[in-house]
Write a protein that binds this DNA or RNA. Sequence first.
DNA 1: CACAACTTTTGACCTACATCAAAAAATCAT
DNA 2: ATGATTTTTTGATGTAGGTCAAAAGTTGTG
Lengths: 193, 193
Amino acid sequence: MTNIEKTDEIFQHFEKYIKLSSLLRKELANRIVLKSFKKGELIHNADTICKKSYFIQKGLIRTYFIKDGKEITEYFSAENEWVNSPRSFIQQQLDIYYLDALEQSECLCLNLQDLGFLFDHFPEMERYARLSMGTVFGHYMDRITSMRFTTAKEKYQHFCETYHEIYHRIPLGMVSSYLGIAQETLSRIRAEK
Amino acid sequence: MTNIEKTDEIFQHFEKYIKLSSLLRKELANRIVLKSFKKGELIHNADTICKKSYFIQKGLIRTYFIKDGKEITEYFSAENEWVNSPRSFIQQQLDIYYLDALEQSECLCLNLQDLGFLFDHFPEMERYARLSMGTVFGHYMDRITSMRFTTAKEKYQHFCETYHEIYHRIPLGMVSSYLGIAQETLSRIRAEK
DNA sequence: CACAACTTTTGACCTACATCAAAAAATCAT
DNA sequence: ATGATTTTTTGATGTAGGTCAAAAGTTGTG
């Protein structure tokens, strides 16, 4: 099977930030591996250092950690986004985050060595990483603002807006831990209109 | 005046992430401009697109925005950190953030064109940006966790830990808006021990 | 040094949301 | 399907921390 079809979306994603030379396309395509995950499958375990980064072609992945024995959602990642355990992957150290698939998911997987090769030989890859992190950064700033100064209801509305493609695909309890509000409160909010 | 003395800290900062060639050192030193700000001085106004990035050698800078007529602190930046209006600077668009000096401050200033030149000619600068953003990213993740699941008291304790070099240099009202708690509540927390 | 302008503290009251508990509904496995 | 497990809803109650208001303390300035 040629790699051409399966790399469409990811190439488009790169080209939001940089121009892809045909050589870089080839090198990327050679290194990307398609991985499928079943619903509920654990993708990354916090007891290991994260060695892989996943570009989601289809599906929904949750990043979570354990606090007082309960799973707390850090965020959700969906189509056309990269997901990994960020600090673990970047700094190659342990971190608290687990990843699992909330739906049957298809991911393009790039491992650390291959990514390192690309960074070493294609400065535009470094640029891509820098610029795309800038985008994510902005989302984080918005989220922090939303956490600080909004009621539970506004938090939920903000969530539905930012995740409007996927919010209905996620169990209530995971949303409530993501927002930092009690599941009962979220249930009541949803009931009222 | 030669540039050598004044670039010590910033070079050290770069070298946490990359090796600086002597050529890059020279190019950096030629482009860096020392800027002083008086206490209270506005460094960046939200009505303009951010064109400069500041590395703080000495002093304390606040990033804030206006909500309902009140200044809300986004974060504080101190010695050996870069500060700018991130989305505005990276994407060259307007954003809501203002920067001002909470103390008399000395900054090494690098403007967008010069930084662009360095990114274009020194791939290791791209790498530096990517890696150092990774560090800041981790702090943001921690902060979001702290916002969601902690009492006001714990938030303040977490703040004192992460900002332990500077927390006593910051007016109470600015800390309370940073933490998203009422100034009166913070005052009571501080009183109790 | 005295008056003005902030900043912080203290007090009284109130509400949004957490917690605990149990019922209802949905999902899953045999 | 049908009982078991998981998820969501509903109800009752408690409290952390918000809001409003005023006093006390601090800092700056002519």
